[in-house]
Deep mutational scan, measured.
Amino acid sequence: GPMASDKRPRTAFTAEQLQRLKAEFQTNRYLTEQRRQSLAQELGLNESQIKIWFQNKRAK
């Protein structure tokens, strides 16, 4: 629909990254900035991508 703007492409996470994020989520529903930074480095992701993933996951 018209609401779907092309400005922010959805990140396609790899299965491996998703597995890691899910495991982290089961341990911590809320990430500290430090955890998020190390996860971002570990997974080669953007911190904001991880932050948003957690927000979306909590919203469900």
Rank of each mutant, 00 (worst) to 15 (best):
Q26E: 12
R10N: 15
F54K: 00
Q34N: 09
R29P: 10
Q55V: 07
R29E: 04
K60N: 07
E24V: 06
A15C: 08
N28F: 04
E16G: 07
Y30E: 07
Q17K: 04
Q19R: 09
T32I: 03
T11V: 13
Q49S: 12
I50P: 00
K51R: 10
R36G: 12
L31F: 03
L43T: 08
R29L: 04
D6T: 08
S38T: 15
Q55G: 07
D6F: 01
E33H: 14
Q41Y: 09
T32P: 04
N46E: 15
I52N: 13
R29C: 07
E33L: 15
E16M: 11
A4M: 15
P2D: 11
S5P: 10
L31E: 08
Q26I: 13
A15V: 12
I52D: 04
N56M: 11
R8H: 08
S5H: 08
A12G: 07
Q41C: 09
A4R: 03
L45V: 12
S48R: 12
N46Y: 13
D6N: 10
L18M: 06
R10C: 15
K7C: 15
Q49T: 13
R36S: 08
W53L: 03
G1A: 08
L45R: 02
A23W: 06
R58S: 06
R35K: 14
K57W: 06
R29S: 06
T27K: 13
G44T: 04
K22Y: 10
F54D: 00
G44N: 13
R10L: 15
W53Y: 05
T11H: 15
I50G: 00
F13I: 06
Q34L: 08
I50N: 00
L18F: 06
Q37H: 10
L43D: 00
Q41V: 12
E16S: 12
W53C: 02
K60L: 10
F13W: 15
Q49M: 10
N56Y: 15
R36D: 02
Q19I: 14
K22D: 04
Q34C: 06
Q26V: 06
Y30P: 03
Q19E: 05
A59T: 09
E42G: 03
Q55P: 01
E42N: 03
A40V: 04
Q26C: 11
L45F: 02
E42Q: 07
K22F: 09
A15L: 10
R8E: 10
R20V: 07
Q49C: 12
T11P: 15
A59Y: 06
S5C: 13
L43Q: 01
F54Y: 04
Q17I: 07
A23M: 09
L21W: 00
Q19S: 13
Q17M: 05
E33R: 14
A12R: 15
F13G: 01
E47G: 07
M3T: 14
L31R: 01
R10Q: 15
K57M: 13
N56Q: 11
K60V: 08
M3F: 04
M3K: 08
Q55L: 11
G44W: 03
L45G: 01
E16V: 12
L21Y: 00
T11G: 14
Q41H: 12
R36L: 14
Q19N: 13
G1P: 13
F25S: 02
R36P: 02
K7D: 15
Q41E: 11
T27C: 08
K7R: 14
F13V: 04
Q26G: 05
N56V: 08
Q17S: 03
E47Q: 10
P2F: 05
T14F: 02
D6H: 05
Q26P: 01
N56C: 10
A23T: 12
K22L: 11
A4H: 14
P2A: 13
A23Y: 11
S5W: 01
M3W: 02
Q49D: 13
Q37K: 12
G1L: 08
L31Y: 01
S48N: 14
R20Y: 05
A59K: 15
N28M: 04
A40W: 01
T27N: 13
E42L: 06
D6S: 09
N28L: 03
S5T: 09
K57E: 11
K22G: 05
K22H: 10
G44V: 04
F13Q: 01
N46M: 09
A59S: 07
R29Y: 04
F54H: 01
E24K: 01
L21M: 05
E24Q: 02
K7Q: 12
A59M: 10
D6A: 10
S38H: 08
L43I: 06
A15N: 07
A23G: 06
R29Q: 06
F54V: 02
T14V: 02
F25Y: 09
M3D: 13
G44Y: 04
R8K: 14
Q37M: 11
T11I: 11
S48I: 15
F25D: 00
A12N: 15
T27V: 14
W53T: 00
K57V: 06
L31G: 01
Q49N: 06
R20N: 02
R10E: 15
E24N: 01
R10I: 15
R8Y: 12
F25M: 02
K57A: 14
Q55E: 09
T27Y: 07
A15H: 13
L31A: 04
L21F: 02
Q37L: 11
L39K: 00
E33M: 11
T32Y: 02
P9M: 03
Y30N: 08
S38F: 11
A12P: 15
A4S: 09
S48Y: 13
L21V: 01
L31M: 08
A40L: 02
K51M: 05
F25W: 05
G44E: 05
S5G: 12
F54M: 03
E47T: 14
N56W: 15
M3R: 03
T14S: 10
G1N: 11
S5V: 08
A40D: 00
Q19H: 08
R8I: 10
Q55W: 15
Y30D: 05
T27I: 14
E24F: 02
P9K: 10
K7W: 06
I50R: 00
M3S: 11
A4G: 14
Q19V: 13
Q17T: 05
Y30T: 11
A15F: 11
A4E: 14
E47N: 04
A40H: 02
F25C: 02
S48W: 14
R10A: 15
L21S: 00
P9I: 03
Q17N: 03
L39Y: 00
N28D: 09
R35T: 09
S38E: 11
E47F: 03
L31D: 08
T14W: 02
R35N: 06
R35E: 13
L18A: 05
R29I: 08
